[in-house]
């Protein structure tokens, strides 16, 4: 048994080495003085300085955060209300809606991205064609390049708005899937009790339902935010002239690779690590207090 234990721990250690070696490499070489990910030339903070001076990357980081925060906020509100609606719906209607809701989650990212790209381009072509050039413009626009970066007067184009719409569309399903189970777990008589005690429906919703499903809302929002920050494929097809950090990285890898990327990844990894430690310590303290209380 003891031997088994050593063997299994060794196996786990190997896998974790495999998972973490590349990340460790990024972190170490972010402090490298040389313009290389292979040769170490001594410690420096040079790449961090250049990163903060790099308008393009910082702009992309700002875009990523802005689109993620906005998409998360909108999705959380819409998703929560939708979940409440679905909860009060008959199965016959609810089940097909939930099936469609699962499509963006289950589908390959590239298919979702391409579908949204086609959708936006078609709608925009219709808009520009009709508004700017009349009906014939529609077909011409469709035939022209999908990525028109320089709009003419009066034209609309793919950019931050389409990016945001795309993010909302893949974030909402996660919120719904996190809130709905919490609603199912809720004791329905609580709402009746609140209304018997004189609450209006709105008051009962605010004071009883929301606190009950709050953990679901929070975890839904967290997952939505993670999905948004991490997304590359769907953003890539819908961002048009806008850019996110992932798109910027992909572009850089194809042309010139800068160790600024190491600095970005180190900073991101550091933030996630600190957040995780805070969350875990808090949970651990809470558990300890609870066990001490009983």
């Amino acid at each position: 048994m003891r031997r088994y234990r050593i063997g299994s721990r060794f196996y786990m250690a190997l896998i974790f080495l495999f998972l973490y070696a590349p990340i460790l490499l990024l972190v170490v070489f972010s402090f490298n003085d040389a313009n290389s990910n292979v040769v170490w030339q001594g410690f420096s903070l040079r790449w961090y300085e250049e990163l903060f001076r790099d308008r393009q990357i910082m702009g992309a980081v700002y875009n990523t955060l802005l689109v993620s925060v906005l998409a998360t906020a909108i999705s959380t509100v819409v998703g929560t209300f939708t979940a409440v609606g679905l909860f009060g719906m008959r199965r016959r209607w609810r089940d097909p809606i939930l099936t469609v809701n699962n499509i963006p989650i289950m589908n390959a990212d590239i298919v979702t991205g391409v579908a949204l790209c086609i959708f936006f381009v078609t709608v925009i072509a219709g808009w520009n064609g009709v508004v700017v050039e009349g009906w014939n413009g529609f077909v011409t626009y469709l035939e022209e390049n999908f990525r028109r970066t320089l709009p003419r007067m009066g034209e609309v184009n793919m950019g931050f708005t389409t990016l945001l719409l795309a993010h909302i569309s893949f974030d909402i399903p996660y919120v719904i899937l996190n809130v709905l189970p919490k609603l199912r777990q809720m004791d329905r008589s609580l709402i009746d009790a609140a209304q018997d005690l004189g609450c209006t429906w709105m008051q009962a919703f605010r004071k009883v339902v929301i606190p009950e499903i709050k953990p679901g809302i929070v975890s839904g929002a967290l997952i939505a935010f993670t999905m948004s920050v991490d997304d590359f494929v769907i953003s890539y097809f819908t961002a048009g002239s806008a850019s996110t950090l992932s798109i910027e990285i992909y572009g850089m890898v194809r042309k010139r690779v800068s160790p600024e990327l190491n600095a970005v990844s180190t900073l991101l990894f550091g933030v996630v690590l600190v957040l995780l430690i805070i969350i875990n310590v808090r949970e651990w303290r809470l558990e300890k207090r609870q066990t001490a209380g009983t």
Binding site: L19, Y20, P22, I23, L25, L26, F29, N37, V38, T226, D230, F232, L245, S246, I249, Y250, V253, V257, L261, V264, S265, L268, F269, V272
Partner: peptide
């Protein structure tokens, strides 16, 4: 590791 952008992780493998 899933919280580190997957393009960055893949980029590390390039090096």
């Amino acid at each position: 590791p899933m919280w580190v952008n997957f393009l960055l992780r893949t980029y590390a493998w390039m090096a």
